[in-house]
Nucleic acid binder design. Structure first.
Lengths: 214, 214
DNA sequence: TAGATTGTTAATCGATTAACAATC
DNA sequence: TAGATTGTTAATCGATTAACAATC
């Protein structure tokens, strides 16, 4: 419902590419070439799968040789949009929000530049967290529109999540990274990615349960 | 490679069940019955999919009526193992680790009880974070064995992740919740769930890219 | 009863894996 | 050259969706 039905990169591919990227960046000698087989071995994946994933980025390899490591790194980063800055608004300056702000990796490695923080708690408004001023939530729409910010990060209590998402979308934000355990209702064309930790934990405890009761 | 090939609950199902649970818990009148159609509508899913997901938990519904809301909540929680406490060790007392500790939801809602924190930084050792004493990393194996802790949470810098995972596994930990952007090598039978935020972000920026260049 | 809903079986769809020709 | 690797097409596998009988 939420996706435009253009031929998109399969989601599993989008989930694997960052793994490859992390591995490639860890290679000390980037002058060497790298093959899909090598990458596949690292993760226990099928080499053909790795080849298809990589092909999505548009890079062309050389038979018998593989890919130039530096090229491949650059190509994956470009494909994911991680080598240009995406400005983002963060809603929520609680524990999780603060951790996201302080977790500098986002900006340096993934290009997510949180430029402003919004919070309902009046006590926090006006203070600074990790160098960003904390602003009232009702400023989101107007500021997003004026700054052309494309991404909104939602890390607030569940009750407020939908209304904050609405404000963001009204301000022209088209991608929402949602850390809140609720199903956001958004118009077609708006992308929601749920970074729900609970979901991830469910997979772990669910498998654990399968294992223990098998 | 990592999974035992017993007939397991499909991972997509494990990812959706927490959504249903969140929705069900948000229903004010839990005396009423609930149908798959209602749940499906909430999320824009196929009702049959919801029915199959729910069937995995073992609950049996009533034709024409649906499921008892309270029963269904309990059944999903039980299936996910969220209504009994799972003790866990946390490795890493940085921004992310601290946020995980303070994020009380884990204990109350998902049964993940972080009982000890381990950190290499000597300056932090001996201090307390959210009521837990910070211990040196080399105590993990011994303590895990003595306390029979089943789950390890890894939120440390990538370089140290593998060695910490090894220590955990040596101590008898069988499930690892990995927040670190590396591929952990673990023996068969050990469950690793990667809660990688970067992966989630990749899906968002990747789709955004697809959308903007379409 | 009528009709909504469950549970289940069959059809469809998409992702993974296998097979293989081209190539450096 | 020989053989490893790419790129691509075909086969397999599993998850999603559709169809439908049973039922309350």
């Amino acid at each position: 419902m939420n996706d435009l039905k253009i031929r998109c990169t399969p989601e599993p591919t989008l989930r694997r590419l960052p793994l490859y990227l992390g591995f490639l960046k860890g290679i000390s000698d980037r002058g060497r070439n790298i093959s899909c087989t090598q990458i596949a071995n690292e993760f226990g994946f099928d080499p053909t799968q790795v080849r298809k994933d990589i092909a999505q980025t548009g890079i062309v390899g050389t038979a018998r040789i593989g890919y130039d490591t530096k090229d491949l790194i650059l190509q994956i980063e470009t494909f994911l949009g991680w080598n240009k800055k995406h400005e983002a608004f963060l809603a929520g300056a609680g524990n999780l929000g603060t951790a996201l702000l302080k977790y500098n990796l986002f900006k340096d490695e993934y290009g997510l530049d949180i430029v402003a923080v919004f919070e309902n708690d009046k006590a926090k408004q006006g203070t600074h967290i990790a160098g960003r001023k904390v602003l009232p939530v009702d400023k989101i729409t107007d500021l997003a529109r004026r700054m052309h910010v494309p991404i909104g990060v939602i890390a607030i209590p569940p009750e407020a999540a939908q209304s904050v998402a609405d404000r963001m979308i009204e301000g022209g934000i088209i991608g929402i990274w949602n850390f809140c355990p609720v199903a956001l209702k958004v118009p077609e064309g708006i992308i929601v990615e749920n970074a729900r930790l609970s979901t991830s934990l469910a997979v772990l405890t669910g498998k654990l349960h399968n294992l223990l009761n098998a």
